[in-house]
Amino acid sequence: MGEAAGERRRCRLLRADVWTDNRELQSYYKNLGFTHVRTVVRDDYPSGALFQIAV
């Protein structure tokens, strides 16, 4: 569903924010071919690891 929706909207990237302490989910995205873009650590917002993949 995500890829089809992206194609309809002419999106080039699919991005996912992951909690900075969720190493298992980060590994999951990496294994799917996502690239780690950056990690931002904030006390008030734990979802700071950004991953993306071309669609």
Results as ranks from 00 to 15, higher is better:
Met1Gly: 15
Met1Ser: 15
Met1Glu: 14
Gly2Ile: 14
Glu3Asp: 14
Glu3Ala: 12
Glu3Thr: 15
Ala4Gln: 12
Ala4Lys: 14
Ala4Met: 12
Ala4Phe: 10
Ala5Gln: 08
Ala5Cys: 05
Gly6Asp: 05
Gly6Arg: 02
Glu7Gln: 13
Glu7Ala: 14
Arg8Trp: 11
Arg8Cys: 11
Arg8Val: 13
Arg8Pro: 02
Arg9Pro: 03
Arg9Ser: 08
Arg9Phe: 09
Arg9Ile: 08
Arg9Tyr: 08
Arg10Gly: 02
Arg10Asn: 10
Arg10Ile: 06
Arg10Ser: 10
Arg10Leu: 12
Cys11Val: 02
Cys11Asp: 06
Cys11Ala: 07
Cys11Gln: 06
Cys11Gly: 07
Arg12Gly: 15
Arg12His: 15
Leu13Lys: 12
Leu13Met: 08
Leu13Val: 08
Leu13His: 09
Leu14Ala: 14
Arg15Trp: 13
Ala16Cys: 13
Asp17Pro: 01
Asp17Met: 11
Asp17Arg: 10
Val18Gln: 01
Val18Ile: 09
Trp19Phe: 15
Trp19Gln: 15
Trp19His: 12
Thr20Phe: 04
Thr20Tyr: 04
Thr20Gln: 07
Thr20Asp: 09
Asp21Glu: 12
Asp21Leu: 07
Asp21Gly: 07
Asn22Ser: 01
Arg23Met: 08
Arg23Phe: 04
Glu24Cys: 06
Glu24Pro: 06
Glu24Tyr: 09
Glu24Met: 08
Glu24Lys: 12
Gln26Asp: 02
Gln26Ile: 00
Ser27Glu: 11
Ser27Tyr: 02
Tyr28Lys: 06
Tyr28Cys: 00
Tyr29Met: 05
Tyr29Pro: 03
Tyr29Leu: 02
Tyr29Ile: 03
Lys30Ser: 00
Lys30Ile: 03
Lys30Cys: 00
Lys30Met: 03
Asn31Gln: 09
Asn31Cys: 07
Asn31Met: 04
Leu32Pro: 04
Leu32Thr: 06
Leu32Ala: 05
Leu32Phe: 06
Gly33Leu: 03
Gly33Pro: 02
Gly33Ala: 03
Gly33Arg: 00
Gly33Lys: 00
Phe34Leu: 02
Phe34Ile: 05
Phe34Lys: 03
Phe34His: 01
Phe34Glu: 03
Thr35His: 08
Thr35Ala: 04
Thr35Asn: 08
His36Gly: 01
His36Thr: 01
His36Leu: 05
Val37Glu: 13
Val37Met: 11
Val37Pro: 05
Arg38Thr: 14
Arg38Trp: 13
Arg38Phe: 14
Arg38Leu: 14
Thr39Asp: 06
Thr39His: 04
Val40Leu: 10
Val40Met: 07
Val41Pro: 01
Val41Arg: 05
Val41Met: 08
Arg42Trp: 03
Arg42Val: 02
Arg42Cys: 07
Asp43Lys: 02
Asp43Arg: 02
Asp43Cys: 01
Asp43Phe: 00
Asp43Leu: 04
Asp44Val: 10
Asp44Trp: 13
Asp44Gly: 11
Asp44Lys: 09
Asp44Phe: 14
Asp44Ser: 14
Tyr45Glu: 13
Tyr45Asp: 15
Tyr45Lys: 12
Pro46Ser: 12
Pro46Gln: 13
Pro46Val: 09
Ser47Val: 11
Gly48Trp: 05
Gly48Lys: 04
Gly48Leu: 09
Gly48Tyr: 05
Ala49Leu: 06
Ala49Ile: 09
Leu50His: 10
Leu50Lys: 08
Leu50Trp: 10
Phe51Ser: 03
Gln52Lys: 03
Ile53Pro: 01
Ile53Trp: 01
Ile53Phe: 03
Ile53Arg: 04
Ala54Met: 11
Ala54Phe: 09
Ala54Asp: 11
Val55Tyr: 01
Val55Thr: 01
